[in-house]
Design a protein around this nucleic acid. Structure first.
Lengths: 208, 208, 208, 208
DNA sequence: TATGAATGAGAGTTCATTCAT
DNA sequence: GATGAATGAACTCTCATTCAT
């Protein structure tokens, strides 16, 4: 009657699980979800292939669990900020600030989560696409600045935010449930308002 | 010098090329880039497998070309609007409106381009993540509305726009070239301003 | 000499062994021998995987032992009947009756033993095959009934028995040891006689 | 415009198909359906693994097609005999004779079809089982011969036929559709009659 | 002696790419 | 130039067996 459960065994199991997720995260960040192969995961985690399946019943489960665990951490940080006593606009600013700087400093893998890396040539074209969209808006904003319709501002950042704002709404759960034409139009008009607001109220960062 | 390049031949070739891209687009919109197999493309385009390689040296090239051609069309529509005589804010509104409604009505494949369909469980977790992020901001906005810090507004739409705005900036080419810490911070502060602006200036759609 | 073989220990061991065989039988009857996995057996028997190997040195041994124990029970029932004082034809009838009804009522696993469940498509084709064979014989018997060569009878049952009879002889141990051509022919002629006998002497069950 | 379809190409394809089925049959006859692995099939047929899937969409389809093609040949031979002008009992005898001798001479793989070879130890036990069953019946028949209840006969063959007859009816499609208790009993009694008939009317082959 | 986590060979299947026709 | 059959590396997943505890 051996095989105690609590002491070293459980620790090893937890450690294995952690290593598997960690290694998977690494692979995702290098080449996207397509870059994850069970055999590679096993090798990097120094675990047999079959063992991977003791922890995650399928590749899909492994990936889903990864996304879940990563996003939970990020979201919990946002929630903590939201729970403070600060005034709303301060909280909002903090949330954006923390989220963005964590991503940029690579302390989170949020980047992989929101921007699935893919086959390189496709990824490049996708960036070209977004860049082109941004440029159109940037130009419009520049025009508006000249005509004093919009205040002076970092047009590139404003443009990117505009593109991001409306694209998000397109993907967002908001747009998923089956809606009717009327709701669609209301949604679009809401986004239009916000995008114009972005252009109209952005200050030059220098002034800030 | 055999003069084989008859107009007829050229027309046929152009037609084949168009069909290949069209069929590929269909497959992408059904199941993402992973859903594209050369054999299926060939079959649907009624072209031999080997012939596909006369038009595109590899699968990657086919996909890249697809993204390029699709995005060119979308961007050219935006450019046309940008080239009109309207004032900047009208142009901006039109751009957003056209882009969004084209996506929603499925007249463009922009959706596939920005939101690569993927393994279901992962996709679900990703949506959960974005939704959770949106909810945090939604709650903050609600708070701000109560304290009259922010005007009354559709908090869900504002929240989605905020999330979209800053996430876009993270993925955007703006943030990709190797920048220094100083620029990063400036960028983040710019986005923070804009996000607060969204919350502070959004009107209730009803009022609009 | 440690005296570990207490009655209690022995009883537990016997009980484990019984449970293992019982669980295995269940699995075989559900999906054939292919459906038996050591891990499942262990789980269902509430015994550790490794422990299974204390009782049966390999999976093959477990299965072999199962077949042995099951068939021993069935055969012993037949032997009991054979040992009674009844006249031969009564014993024979009882044997058939008991065997068949036990199988049909699922009280024995004889069915699994004689008809290994397998991949569905193959199993279907096999049944189609046997059915086609039976139909040929059924038709011949019908012809014979019309010409008064054979008595009126349930031609479908007779046909199935004929097919079963000669197929059995083909598989049967009778035909396994290396025999010569002469013996083969004698064997076949013996079966032919019996099959004709079946057709010639079967009564309509109604008359029985 | 090349790649003519009719001449050599089609011949090669047909040949590949034939080779695949032939090789599979070989493997089945050596170790049963379990013994068939696509990689082995491909290797023996001197064809790439992937090519196998051009001919058969899955392993199951390959096996099913094998059973189908083999059984069609056997059944068609039976049907030819059934279509002759001979009297019913002659046809019946011919059918049995041909079927049995083809099997025994290995000219057909009927053997593999009706007796799925399996893991050796299990197969052995199965044979032991059938042999034990046969022996019980053999003994009963001997008794009957002594008491002049049954005529003198090759008791071993009769016993095998009896076992085969009733086992067949158990597996046979006759017994598959959901029947009620009443029909079950009628079926069993029909088989009982036939089995007794076998014992009562079999002659010694010597006399034949 | 019992335990069950770990192992890893091996199975079925897919698909981008090649090349004889 | 066009064709599509052939290729085979690569992938996910299974499971009998082992062995440290």
């Amino acid at each position: 009657m051996a095989y105690k459960k609590t002491p070293k065994t459980e620790a090893k199991k937890a450690n294995n699980r952690r290593r598997l997720l960690s290694v998977t995260r690494q692979l995702v960040s290098e080449g996207g979800f397509v870059n994850v192969q069970i055999s590679t995961v096993a090798q990097l985690a120094e675990i047999a292939i079959g063992t991977v399946y003791r922890y995650f019943p399928s590749k899909g489960d492994l990936l889903a669990e990864l996304v879940r665990s990563l996003s939970e951490r990020e979201v919990s940080i946002l929630r903590e900020i939201a729970a403070t006593d600060a005034i709303a606009s301060e909280k909002l600013a903090d949330c954006v600030r923390v989220f963005a700087s964590r991503s940029m400093k690579g302390r989170s893998v949020a980047y992989s989560l929101i921007a699935e890396p893919m086959e390189e040539s496709v990824a490049i074209e996708r960036l070209v696409y977004r860049r082109a969209c941004c440029e159109v808006f940037e130009q419009i904003i520049h025009e508006g600045i000249v005509t004093h319709e919009f205040p002076d501002q970092k047009a590139d950042i404003s443009a990117a935010c505009i593109v991001g704002a409306f694209m998000e709404v397109l993907i967002s759960p908001l747009s998923l449930p089956n809606r009717n034409k009327f709701e669609d139009e209301a949604l679009i008009e809401g986004v239009v308002e916000i995008c114009i607001g972005i252009a109209k109220t952005s200050k030059s960062t220098n002034e800030a």
